[in-house]
Design a protein around this nucleic acid. Structure first.
Lengths: 221, 221
DNA sequence: GCCTCTGGTTATTGATTGATTACTAAGCAG
DNA sequence: CTGCTTAGTAATCAATCAATAACCAGAGGC
């Protein structure tokens, strides 16, 4: 780090000021990941700050409270999920997806979301926090939103929607227990993951091995 | 103890010393409920102590650490779940349950466990804590244990087991978001719960209305 | 060339909270 | 009764954490 020349101004091309909206989205992304892994109560605003590369008070000041930040995180996750579903529905309405494939394509859209671990996991952490008066309220509303979208907009029979959601919750649980990262060749685990993740299995296992940005805790000597 | 005239001594007929093993199980029961509702990180040992009617240090001393207590809680839940399943399998092996009913009866056994909210919810909280090195390890092992039990002892095809587990995870999620307690007549919620809980629906809704021992937080003005 | 938003930081604090220590009392054995 | 083991409590501590306060700098407008 000892620059021979005295030109200090050229030393930080990465360190820049950032417009608030952009910083906000950046924080939400990292918060999604950390909340998704450690849960609401198990996550500190400091951990999120470190992941986002800023100071802890700034995180708090930008979102008011930790709880408001969490609500925004699950709202964002819910948004991305519905956008993904509605995109499939749009392709269906334009005839690009035949009706007999619609279910499979919606399932595919869900599984595709696995790649951003934070979305599915933070959403699941929101569900599990259902006892909380404010988070729980949002979680229930969100879950029913998805249910209605699949039933009323995709026109699926109620029990098919239920089954679809069940498969989703299993996927979430398998990700939550970290099976793709820790199955170590176990035969039963491999079988269950093959059946659950389908064609996306290799992607899931690949995303597991290259650790997703764990640089946050690489600095406590 | 035979002094009837002493009015102070007669004041606590309920307050008795309890053998450690019995107290231990009592704590585990209450811990199961509180952990199940608020999660691992979101639960304080003080809350568990209050629920169990003892002092906080005693909870810690009996189990060593909060983490060890949590592991015992999910171990206990896992135990009760496997006991319930194996009882169905026993009835099947003695011919009291025909093979074509086995799946339904196992499902029934699972749904029956809803009555003790703590079991399913604390287990789910264990799953969601999968990132934790010690809790996660136990959660993964427990999940695969159940998978193998259904596949190898109940002799179900792998994909039926997957589907069975998926239904279970949906039930857990619906309970976690507290839908039975807060659906308020919502049409979609009612439909989804009817499909998910089946014949057990009224029991679920009934267990929801009579609040399960919420006296713990009746003191924060 | 100054002024003033906007995007940040460092320092600090009050409340929790898991854990420890030291103490007390019940109850059984002899 | 005496004494030891077992069941429990009260007091306290050291860390952690969300939140607040106070301050600072870069960059554009004028």
């Amino acid at each position: 780090m000892s620059s021979v020349t005295n030109n200090a101004a050229v030393e930080h091309p990465v360190r820049e000021r950032m417009p608030a909206a952009e910083r906000r989205e950046l924080i939400l992304g990292h918060a999604s990941e950390v909340f998704g892994r450690r849960g609401y109560a198990g996550t500190t605003t400091e951990q999120i700050a470190q992941a986002a590369g800023i100071s802890q008070p700034y995180v708090v000041r930008m979102f008011g409270t930790k709880e408001k930040l969490f609500v925004e995180v699950i709202e964002r996750a819910l948004g991305k999920l519905t956008v993904a579903f509605r995109e499939v529905l749009r392709l269906h309405s334009t005839g690009e997806i035949p009706s007999n494939e619609l279910g499979a394509r919606l399932g595919q859209a869900y599984v595709d979301l696995i790649e951003d671990r934070g979305i599915l996991m933070s959403l699941m952490q929101g569900f599990i926090q259902g006892h909380d008066p404010v988070i729980g309220e949002r979680a229930r509303a969100g879950f029913l939103e998805i249910y209605r979208l699949l039933r009323d907009e995709a026109n699926f029979p109620a029990d098919e929607v239920r089954s679809f959601l069940a498969d989703g919750m299993l996927i979430n649980t398998l990700l939550a227990i970290g099976l793709p990262d820790n199955f170590e060749g176990d035969e039963a685990a491999t079988e269950l993951m093959t059946l659950s993740f389908g064609a996306k299995l290799d992607t899931v296992l690949c995303a597991a091995t290259d650790r997703p940005a764990d640089r946050a805790q690489a600095n406590l000597p």
